[in-house]
Design a protein around this nucleic acid. Structure first.
Lengths: 82, 82
DNA sequence: TCTGATTTGTCCGTATGTATG
DNA sequence: TCATACATACGGACAAATCAG
C-alpha cells in the first residue's frame, strides 16, 4: 500500500479501512518509531479530512492487529516489534 | 433500451425487469462510472415510485449479470469493465 | 490547588444495505 | 407489495484523563 495515498470517500472500500492501511504503510516506512506516538487523532482528522470516529476505527484495526497501542489521554504508540 | 424511460406498472414486463434495463442503460450511457456508487435504493424508490423490494430485485438482476456489485452499508457500485 | 490545552473515551443522529414476516 | 427491525458506516458533540504552568 502506498503510504502517501489519499482517501477516496466514495470508493467501495470504507474510508476507515483505507486509512488503516495507509497508517500501517507509514509505520512500515518509519514515519513513527516503536514506543513513540503517531499523529494524534485530531491531527489525522485534519490531515485526511475524516471524522474522528472514522480515524478511531482505523486505529482500532491496527490495535487489533497489534501494530499500535493506545494510552488514554496520552496518544497512540507504535508497538515494539517482537 | 431508453435510459430515460419510465416504469409502466401495467405493462407485460414486470416493473423490476423494466427498472433493471433502465439502470443498465443509464450505466451504459455513463450516468455512473466504474467503482463509483449508483443512486441509493431510497433514491431509486423515490425517483421511480416503486417499493423497496422491487428496486432491490432490479439491482439483483444487475448483480447477477456482473454489472454492479453491492457493498453493505456503503452502496451499489458499477463493476469495472473487464 | 487551580486553569487551560491536548488527548483519548463515549454517546447519539443519520444514511446505507440486509433480513424477516 | 409493504412494514418493521437490524447491522454497519460516518459524522458531530460532549465528557474524562493527562500534563504543563
Amino acid at each position: 500500500m502506498d503510504p502517501d495515498a489519499e482517501i477516496d470517500p466514495d470508493g467501495p472500500v470504507t474510508p476507515y479501512r483505507q486509512l488503516a492501511e495507509i497508517l500501517r504503510a507509514r509505520i512500515d516506512r518509519g514515519d513513527w518509531k516503536p514506543d513513540r506516538p503517531i499523529a494524534s487523532e485530531t491531527q489525522l482528522v485534519q490531515e485526511y479530512g475524516l471524522a474522528r470516529t472514522t480515524v478511531r476505527r482505523a486505529i482500532k484495526v491496527l490495535v487489533d492487529d497489534g501494530v499500535v497501542y493506545v494510552v488514554p489521554a496520552r496518544g497512540t504508540y507504535v508497538a515494539a516489534k517482537k
